[in-house]
Design a protein around this nucleic acid. Structure first.
Lengths: 145, 145
DNA sequence: ATAATAAAAGACAATTTTATCTTTTATTAT
DNA sequence: ATAATAAAAGATAAAATTGTCTTTTATTAT
């Protein structure tokens, strides 16, 4: 569905939301090991998330690393997609047509719309916080065995 | 959602299903112009669809071109995804986790599953024929204005 | 002030996807 | 048989995505 980059962004953000606080920041080594992603590449992605939409914060130097504010943790998961520039993917024509709309629908449009609406709703409703605490509760998982 | 290649495959197949019969085959120039895709690249994709899963047929020489058998037209749209090797995409973890399953679900798993099931159902239920005749009826569109 | 730490930034490389162009092969009509 | 037609096949290239490595900058603790 999404690119590898966005997958890393989603997982890294959820990990930071779980483990990182302003006085216990979390390093890129820890993050990339935990989510099984290439270290430097993940660093670049986190730079995007810190710069563009301020979803995560970071500081350099000793005891530096990444963390999230409580406010940011309450953002919908969709905010991560937006920061990664893949939010539009959710609303795109499934046949890949540029001109697909209510007025000029493709043959899949009306039936896919019902699904698409739920998909957007899901990413809009679920917050980063919610998913992170679901992981904490131990009922769902995000780490490699 | 899908790659550009798969988008071309879907659109080309629907176009062939509409316009192509065994005694009126349809050429790659016509197809690529109609669906707005790069000619030679589309040709490669159609070669896949003819070879791998026999979704479309082709002949060389004068009055040659692409067409579909009635049997093939009754295949679900999903068959095109399978031929393109992107069928698995429908069932993949939305966070990009390799190990995401009922036993070990990611935090999005249970809610996404409901949507995923509908998505697979849609591609499984809709036939190539159905979509092609919907286009013919003039209520839905696939060509560039 | 200085050394140590950790992210930011930059340069570069590998891989995958997408696209173009040319040559070959198969088929048809003359 | 020959010429014309159209897909198949092959070679190559451009672009985008993913990945690695090095240097720089900011911060902290000594």
């Amino acid at each position: 569905m999404f690119s590898k980059s966005t997958g890393y962004a989603l997982r890294a953000t959820l990990y930071i939301a779980q483990k990182g606080t302003e006085d216990h920041k979390i390093g890129i080594d820890d993050i990339s090991k935990a989510i099984g992603s290439p270290r430097s590449f993940t660093a670049k992605i986190l730079q995007l998330l810190t710069k563009n939409n301020k979803i995560i914060h970071s500081t350099t130097g000793p005891h530096g690393g990444f963390y999230m504010t409580e406010k940011a943790k309450n953002l919908p998961v969709r905010a991560i997609l937006q920061a990664m520039g893949e939010d539009g993917l959710l609303d795109r024509c499934i046949l890949g047509l540029a001109e697909c709309s209510e007025k000029r629908p493709c043959p899949m449009h009306s039936k896919y719309k019902i699904i698409k609406t739920q998909l957007i709703g899901l990413f809009e409703t679920e917050t980063i916080n919610q998913l992170a605490s679901d992981i904490q509760s131990g009922k769902v998982f995000m780490k490699l065995k």
